[in-house]
């Protein structure tokens, strides 16, 4: 392979990895509190459509980004009301949230299909632009979300593992009864974790429509929400490992696009499948080692301590 190809791949990996990383971080926070949100796909769609619509209507991508984060947070709070307060089954509620997201995003985005927007501004530090092979690619020409993606991952790690709040969240995810006995309120912590996760999911969706594609089309997330659920497992619920996981999958997407662009002889349908095949491979390879890493209370409903 040639240097431009590799650099192009890397640039693509970082670009499509950004939204994967934000979504993985969001889902990691939620799952650390014991709640698995299968409806993440719906959250991403809502983020993408709200972000795009608000940007198209207002002409301000920052406003769109902000609205997408809020919408994601609110959607996850609704999910929280179902599974925390109403104690509904998490898997069924998650799937319902996904379809809700499909419908809601289509409704919100309907007026703006085909609209042209100015997306999030991108910039490249001038000292990096000096390199010949950097100039030829999109490498280091990023929007704010991409630039701060890794710092955000470190921040999430720090919040989960180095703060009183994070200790409470992890304790709730392991054993709500013990956390309750320690004087923490499991429901409040789960709502907090879910709203953080929702904001990050909304931003992840917005990055797709405001930076990557600059269009809105129905179901544009194409299963990324489900890939992310596998990524959370792959990264063992650790925000730092999530960086590598997101890059890997971003790379798979980017490779697939590069191959198609270069007129590869492999069927485009097969290429389209590659991220999902990678997901399957990783789930198979990771299957056995899951037990010690997963939060013990993941997916369980806490009925209080009688």
């Amino acid at each position: 392979m040639t240097t431009p190809l590799i650099l192009g791949l890397l640039a693509g990996a970082i670009l499509s990895g950004t939204s994967l990383l934000y979504a993985t971080l969001g889902e990691t926070i939620a799952e650390r509190s014991g709640i698995v949100n299968l409806g993440l796909e719906g959250i991403l769609l809502i983020g993408a459509s709200v972000g795009f619509s608000v940007t198209a209507a207002s002409g301000n991508a920052w406003l769109g980004l902000f609205a997408a984060g809020m919408a994601g947070g609110l959607a996850n709070l609704l999910f929280g009301w179902l599974v925390v307060t109403r104690k509904a089954n998490q898997l069924a509620s998650g799937l319902a949230m996904m379809f809700f997201g499909f419908g809601a995003s289509a409704l919100i985005g309907a007026r703006y299909v085909g609209a042209v927007i100015v997306g999030l501004p991108k910039w490249r530090p001038s000292w990096l632009a000096g390199f010949r092979w950097v100039k030829a690619t999109t490498l280091f020409n990023y929007d704010l979300l991409t630039w701060v993606a890794i710092p955000v991952a470190v921040l999430v790690w720090w919040a989960l593992f180095r703060t009183r709040w994070g200790l409470g969240v992890r304790a709730v995810g392991e054993s709500p009864a013990v956390a309750f006995a320690a004087g923490r309120n499991p429901a409040v912590l789960q709502y907090q974790a879910l709203s953080c996760g929702g904001v990050l999911g909304g931003l992840a969706g917005a990055h797709l429509s405001l930076s990557l594609t600059l269009t809105w089309s129905e179901y544009m997330t194409a299963g990324r929400g489900f890939i992310v659920i596998a990524l959370v497992i792959f990264s063992k619920w650790n925000p730092l490992r999530a960086i590598a996981a997101a890059l890997l999958f971003g790379g798979a997407e980017s490779l697939q696009l590069q191959m198609q662009a270069r007129g590869s002889l492999i069927s485009p349908f097969l290429l389209d499948m590659s991220p999902y095949i990678l997901t399957l491979i990783i789930l198979v390879a990771w299957g056995g080692s899951r037990r010690l890493a997963a939060p013990a209370g993941l997916g369980r409903t806490f009925y209080g301590s009688e």
Binding site: L167, R170, A171, E174, S175, A177, V178, A181, A182, L292, P295, A296
Partner: peptide, 10 residues
Amino acid sequence: MLIPALSVLE
């Protein structure tokens, strides 16, 4: 009342 996955300190 202990959480097996967390450290003693945590």
